[in-house]
Design a protein around this nucleic acid. Structure first.
Lengths: 236, 236
DNA sequence: ATTGATTTGTTCGTATGTATC
DNA sequence: GGATACATACGAACAAATCAA
């Protein structure tokens, strides 16, 4: 239930329904007919997505930075990232869609076993006719029994949710720079060996099983990856 | 209190005291003499730092990936990142330590007002004699009244904690690629114009005030920035 | 400037649901 | 099916920070 409330609040925020701060917890309790515990858990979720700054005694203030610019991608949102890109959804052009077996490298990348069958989806994605990224994405068939040519054109995660009720819970993200090999360089139209920002992501189900992993090469000019962290004091 | 428990658990994890999973919540309740609510909140914190995978009905499993390698930096931990770098703490060499006023660019970078007085600390940091990063860090004097030459040699955050009880709560992070200007290129020994991975961070107090912001240029070979995200289903 | 009301933060207890073993 | 273990939800109380009269 707190998930649903968190969704509603997030939608309200991105729709610009709140000027500077959220309604008080009390107000939200009556609005959603839920206990304070539940409301606070929902706010927790919104907060963790980098959309709020909480101030005790004062309120929950909307953070305005990351969504304003088309050059900022909020990774704290989690997958269906396309939905959160300012300037509209990303348009996909599928380059490769097939089934392969995991070699040693892919097994390591996806934290799975060698030889596991995978759907492979390679797509170029565009934001308003400007190339945004090259995405190489893999789905273990043990978890995703079928993926349609049609489904991979749009949001794959939306397809999995609707078709199988597959629902991701956590993602491990690794950001680094890689030098493009010839194939990738040609696809994105950059020189071979060019240092490109790359995001390796591994998506887990609540059960702890990998249902997707991917490499995303970002080529959109001046793109910034945003995320939000909380800190604790690791003092001795 | 749940903060303290979270710290203890994290320390135990990095010390390798748990093989594969945490004790059950019940066990932790007796160990720390706290209610289930408090224990769960503590586990929440640990989880958000990317150290656990939670599986209902089964347990909280230790995630082993990120800490094993010197080339992975776990940003979900928050600041005192040096403590979490495998291979020992980072050694700082202070390049610049002075006081300046924020110009337009710095004001924008740090989400502060133009003309605000700042401590500026520029350091090169090394991991076992290998250059790790170039860090340009700023502290508004309105929040940090004094910073000693001695304090900036080591962990500045530890200094602030001990001297003023200044304690960060949240960080906004922006990862992008920048081309090095002549000054920075010379400092890190890379060619001018080289694409370098850069982390812009803004650190907030619990009150919502900026107490630090920084640019970090990473030059350590094959370095990967790791962080952990939770996902929610933004379905319509 | 002090007081009192408001608002968020932390902790406890309890009950029920759901997934795993 | 039963036991174990984590997930969600409600209610209540007090603490701490902020805000307004």
């Amino acid at each position: 239930m707190y998930h649903a409330i968190a969704q509603d609040i997030i939608k309200a925020i991105v729709a610009g329904e709140y000027e500077t701060k959220l309604p008080t917890e009390k107000a939200l309790m009556t609005q959603f007919d839920a206990s304070r515990t539940t409301i606070r858990r929902a706010i927790d979720v919104v907060f963790r997505h980098g959309l709020l700054r909480r101030v005790q005694g004062s309120g929950n203030f909307i953070v305005k930075q990351p969504q304003n610019s088309a050059t900022v991608l909020n990774l704290s949102i989690g997958f269906d990232r396309a939905a959160m890109v300012a300037g509209g959804p990303l348009i996909s052009k599928v380059v490769t869609f097939d089934r392969i077996k995991a070699d040693e490298q892919l097994a390591k990348q996806g934290n799975i076993a060698i030889g596991d069958e995978l759907y492979r989806v390679i797509r170029l994605r565009y934001l308003q006719d400007q190339l945004y990224d090259l995405e190489e994405s893999y789905f273990p068939r043990a978890v995703v029994p079928y993926l349609s040519e049609d489904g991979v054109q749009h949001s794959i995660f939306a397809f999995l949710r609707d078709a199988y009720g597959i629902y991701g819970s956590t993602t491990e993200n690794y950001v680094h720079q890689v030098r493009l090999n010839a194939t990738r360089a040609k696809l994105v139209g950059q020189p071979v060996g060019d240092k490109t920002m790359c995001l390796d992501g591994i998506n887990y189900l609540a059960s702890g099983i990998v249902f997707n992993f991917s490499k995303t090469f970002f080529v959109y000019p001046d793109l910034e990856l945003y995320y939000h962290t909380e800190n604790i004091d690791l003092q001795d």
